[in-house]
Structure formats: structure tokens, C-alpha cells
Amino acid sequence: MTELITAEMVELDLPPGDKDTTTARLVDRLVAAGRVTDREAFLADVRAREAVMPTGIEGGIGIPHARSAAVTAPTVAFGRSADGIDYGAADGPATLVFLIAAPDGGDADHLKVLAALSRRLIHESFREALHQAEDPDQVVALFNREVVVK
């Protein structure tokens, strides 16, 4: 099975911007890593999901995500922003952004790793560790250690 995240899918200093530009930046990383085959199609799927209901949640988290035929393997791209990016959460902009890409169709087992990831996101300790991480490799190590499929 492919890794959930690699160092090239991590960006620790997102430039100021809105959710569209930020999501697009992270999508570009997934395209470069070969996880997304069609940039525009995947972006459109993420935007469509975002339009249903903003994905920002309290505590400075944005989780743009979509299930899309343009995705080759369950993947997350991670971005950190000092200023925060508005993902529509009630309490303000997101400083941690997780772009979750799920392949369309395929078997349910594929999605379990994303479910495990989502479960970690609500834990303050996990968020705090992501804030403290000093380089992309630490982030990747953190994901590998914390996101465990039960």
C-alpha cells in the first residue's frame, strides 16, 4: 500500500491566501507526487464538496476533501499557515490544513486509513505536535506513528 503522506506533500509555511488558492497549492503537490491525475477535475470535486458545507472546523482546522476519479491512492497533503486560511469555521481561520484525497470507487479498506486520519484530527495532542513540527519529515513521521488503522 502507498504511503498516506510523504515529505513532498507537506508545506509548513503556506503563503497568505484564501481557501481556493491554498487548496490549489496543496492539490499541485498531490499532482506532482502522482497521487492526482487530473488537477482541474480534482479541484472541481473539492470545490463542489466545499460548496455543500464549508469544511473548516473549530480549533483552526480546514479539511478540504473529496472522493474523486482523479485520485490514485488515499492521500493527505498537509499545509500549515501562520496567518490562517479561512475555511469557514465559526471560530476563525485554519492554521492547519489537511487536503484529503480519496479514490472514487475501489474497496472500503482503502478508505480506512482516511477514517483513521480523521479520527486523529480531533485530538489536541496531534494538532499541537503538528504545530511544533520543524520540518516535513517530522510531519510525515508523526502521521505514520499516529494514524493507525485498527
Partner: peptide
């Protein structure tokens, strides 16, 4: 949740 890959599991964990 609508997509069923993120919020569903976050809510469950919470």
C-alpha cells in the same frame, strides 16, 4: 456526512 471520509469519523472519535 456528505462525503463520508472525514467529518463522519471525526464526529465518531469526538
Amino acid at each position: 456526512c456528505p462525503t463520508g471520509i472525514a467529518h463522519t469519523y471525526m464526529a465518531a472519535e469526538a
